[in-house]
């Protein structure tokens, strides 16, 4: 043991030199800047998306009036007589998304209540990974499944179901977004403090009554966020509809028939070899912009709702 006195403190071998400190500060600052740039890159990505979509769509709207775009009921950009009514594609998208939500919202709500309030912890630990596995399945595989397994199966008991239709892709998308809805809403339900549950039990509520009257209202904004995010995913889902919903752009009224969605249309055009700058090429950016705006609004709304429930508890 070396006795250390004031006089020898300066000769301490572990005393850091000014030069070392300077170098260390420089490294620290450099890394801080690099990390900041990496974080800002995400803003650049959004800016890039907005720039590409808006600039290409601007060329499109220079040739097609926005009123026609929103009100025309036909979509025939590659035909001789051209029509650009986006509502045809939007109707297909809304139809599949609505069917997906009809499947996923009740099932997701029931499952998340079951997992968060009823299931034993071991059961929950076993179930959640399986749900995660579903969300890991590539969408193109779900597309194959919808077209070549579910549709033929459904055709055996639903007369009039076309080979390409909106019903089956809608249901399959519903199953695809189910794990996501369950995970977000279960997260919200578990954030409800136990003291509220105990209060309800003390009043003689059953587990189900507690779930419905205390947990769901308590987690309301989080559950809503889950539905909205699920909707956003359903709207943006591409491969299932591109494979199984058909490519005919028309106002979708009958889910048993096929119709193109926004995403399926973009895929369809991308498969062909369209010259850069042609009107058909520009349509995919106009369609993409529409899609981006819809999902953007959903995402922001959901972000705000989720932040709200995090603040409450």
């Amino acid at each position: 043991m070396v006795s250390q006195s004031h006089a020898t403190a300066a000769a301490d071998p572990f005393e850091v030199s000014e030069a070392f400190l300077k170098r260390r500060r420089l490294v620290d600052l450099t890394m801080r800047c690099i990390l900041f740039l990496a974080a800002s890159l995400s803003i650049l990505v959004t800016a890039g998306i907005v720039y590409v979509l808006v600039s290409e769509a601007a060329h499109f709207f220079a040739q097609v009036s926005i009123v026609d775009f929103l009100t025309d009921t036909q979509w025939t950009p590659v035909f001789q007589e051209k029509h650009f009514g986006i509502m045809t594609l939007v109707s297909g998208t809304l139809m599949t998304s609505a069917i997906a939500l009809i499947v996923a919202v009740p099932a997701g709500t029931i499952l998340s209540i079951y997992l968060s309030e009823f299931a034993q912890p071991q059961v929950r630990e076993a179930i959640k990974p399986i749900l995660e596995l579903i969300s890991g399945v590539p969408t193109v595989a779900f597309g194959y499944f919808a077209l070549l397994f579910v549709t033929p199966l459904f055709q055996t008991f639903i007369p009039g179901l076309s080979g390409f239709n909106l019903l089956v892709p809608g249901i399959v998308i519903g199953i695809m977004i189910l794990p996501f809805i369950v995970s977000v809403s279960e997260d919200a339900m578990r954030a409800v403090p136990n003291s509220l549950r105990e209060g309800a039990y003390a009043l003689g509520f059953t587990r189900l009554q507690t779930s419905v009257r205390v947990v769901i209202p308590g987690a309301f904004s989080g559950i809503t966020a889950a539905y909205i995010l699920g909707m956003s995913r359903a709207v943006g889902e591409t491969m299932v509809v591109a494979i199984a919903a058909g490519q005919q752009a028309k106002i979708a009224v009958n889910p048993l028939e096929g119709a193109a969605t926004i995403t399926a249309y973009i895929v369809q055009i991308s498969l062909g070899d369209l010259p850069h700058g042609s009107i058909a090429y520009l349509t995919i950016f106009a369609a993409g912009l529409t899609l981006f705006v819809i999902t953007f609004l959903f995402n922001i709304l959901a972000f705000w709702l989720r932040r709200k429930y995090r603040e409450v508890y």
Partner: peptide, 24 residues
């Protein structure tokens, strides 16, 4: 750790100091 943070990397010094500190 404290030595690494101060830029001391010489193996012999580090080893010696680690032993000394652990003894202390």
């Amino acid at each position: 750790s404290g030595l690494y943070i101060r830029g001391v990397k010489t193996r012999a010094i580090v080893e010696q100091r680690v032993e000394q500190s652990l003894r202390q």
